[in-house]
Nucleic acid binder design. Structure first.
Lengths: 196, 196, 196, 196
DNA sequence: TATGAATGAGTCTTCATTCAT
DNA sequence: TATGAATGAAGACTCATTCAT
């Protein structure tokens, strides 16, 4: 058990270190050397837990998305089943909160430079998150609460819209208050699903 | 004048070469060596026209956006002044067409890896494009055709949404036909501005 | 005794694993990790049976040569004592057969990169094999069957010649049939000892 | 012209440096770092003249063989056309001299670890040398001076034999005087071609 | 303007070996 | 005996940038 715990710990330490470095130096500033240095282990140890540098990045994406999904599921589970607009808003709000809470990380992790170091993971992390939104729209539509024809493509649009504002707010116009972002994003969501 | 023209030419050649390489090898596959090689000039020449590698990328972004803006302005100028929904749709359609016509390039150029090659250009290329959309929304609202409170933030949302679908369609689900993308994006735009 | 047997077994397993890897990946593709992996033991176990990686290679050389020598001795023991040319030919034939039967292994093992992994083993494996040939020549000369002055140096020459052809046939001209190689090598041997 | 000379010089410097390092540390002790260090140039410069580490080795082989071939051709050109045994002996003598003059280098360079870093060069350097010997045997046979059926395979045998003795003398029994090696090798050659 | 040889810091990755358990 | 996590030295190769000509 101790061994198992240590293993888990070390992988997490490495992941934490990588996360911290991405936050401070950006994705391109991430070096295996720095990661192991920050984690306090030898360089070779890195390769005991990750096949390559690209794999930590993927693992980090997974972790970030997984946490966000979990959090959103928790929130949604506390809402009335039939309050579809409320559920959509909750989803949006939590996504924005999570992103703004650690903007640099989300940014670096999900600013795709496609074709580059794409370590394909079957269904990528972001895709799973997108699927969650898509399902939400789909279920709401089935329940008659949303007037939407193509849940998937609409989910993509909404997802892109939210990512877009967040990116804009974080990088180009920090004067916009988070509350306003949330409000407008929700308004946007409501329009999309035809609620009012 | 000949000299001046040559200068312009050579800069363009370099730009063309860079563009071509990004299309074929991606942004991370771009090397100064390849650019000068493809442009048929010596490596040192590169630095006569661009301060650094990051600067070509920026210049390329400018050029791409400038062309798109010009094209959109041309299209809009042919539309009736008061057909605001038509103008918005034309804007969206053209953006999607331009993107899909050279997806790799737009992709590489606007998949920001912030903090990386951020050669800040005052108001960045993309910002100018965004401003165009924002102005369109604003004018439409002033004319009473759009019911929108905050044109800027709504422009950002719409812009992000479109970029998002395009990215999705190009990288994750190529089965979606361009026409459908255009249709949904326009529908999305109409909902946003409250046009039925 | 059981323990002793296990020990022997494990050492052999390790040796077998190393042999197999050399055959498939070449000497430079040999890693302790792969060896222990293929042998089904932990990495540390390797160092319980061999002082270093270089030592397995040496041990493998010994084993290969030992087997060959044994086989040749068996063959020679069945031949008439006084048929010296026949004995020499048998020796040559068996050497060629053994080599061609597992060319990769012999190759990797006896393509000396001197100064590299030279774990000096007193009289090296190959030397013992050479000594066998030398003795054969010497005895044949003593019996008056071979007209040779310096058995040792002639053994070296013959040994090198055979190794040379084998290497050539295996790596550069696979079109040469084994039978021809054997025939020419024997002819070569006969000339050397002055038989016809 | 200066530029051309410098270029040639630098490539040669690198080659010289590599040669020197191989002599002192063996082939496996050869590092790009050391080579550039010894040549007094920056690390990157190495890759301006050679595609990879493996390529210097090949280039070195070429150079060594080329020099030897040139020297042998010079020697042969001074001998009477019809003294075939003399020509063969001269070839053998020069090969042994060249080898012994820089044993470490020849050794490291031609101790093939096949399948490893084999940078195939069409007809490899050693092959060209072998061809020279083969041609010599063939011509001598045509002239009626050598009684040999298959020049190529016999050349391979002789070539291997000589390499074998040299390796043996250099690594295992330094007590054998060079003169004796030469004498025996020549004797060996004569036997091979059926000259007394 | 134009050249292109030279630079050298920067990075990933491998792998033999050790050692606490 | 046996394990296997941890080590860290070593090494190949890249590429943006400079500068003498």
């Amino acid at each position: 058990m101790t061994a198992a715990r240590n293993t888990t710990d070390k992988r997490s330490q490495l992941l934490d270190a990588a996360e911290q470095i991405i936050v401070s130096k950006g994705l391109s500033g991430l070096t295996v050397d720095d990661v192991t240095g920050a984690a306090g282990v030898a360089k070779g140890t890195f390769y005991l837990y990750f096949q390559s540098k690209a794999h930590v990045i993927t693992a980090l994406q997974e972790r970030v998305v997984e946490r966000l999904i979990t959090q959103q599921q928790l929130l949604l589970s506390r809402l009335p089943e039939d309050d579809w607009v409320g559920r959509l808003e909750a989803w949006i709000v939590e996504m924005i909160n999570a992103y703004m809470h650690n903007a640099h990380l989300h940014d670096a992790l999900f600013a795709h430079a496609p074709g580059d170091s794409d370590v394909q993971t079957g269904v990528s992390a972001a895709n799973r998150h997108l699927l969650m939104l898509s399902t939400l729209l789909s279920d709401g539509a089935d329940a008659g609460a949303f007037s939407i024809d193509r849940p998937k493509i609409n989910a993509v649009l909404l997802y892109g819209a939210i990512h877009g504002v967040l990116d804009y707010v974080v990088h180009h116009d920090k004067s916009i208050p988070p509350d306003l972002v949330i409000e407008e994003a929700c308004e946007f969501g409501r329009k999309l699903v035809g609620a009012h």
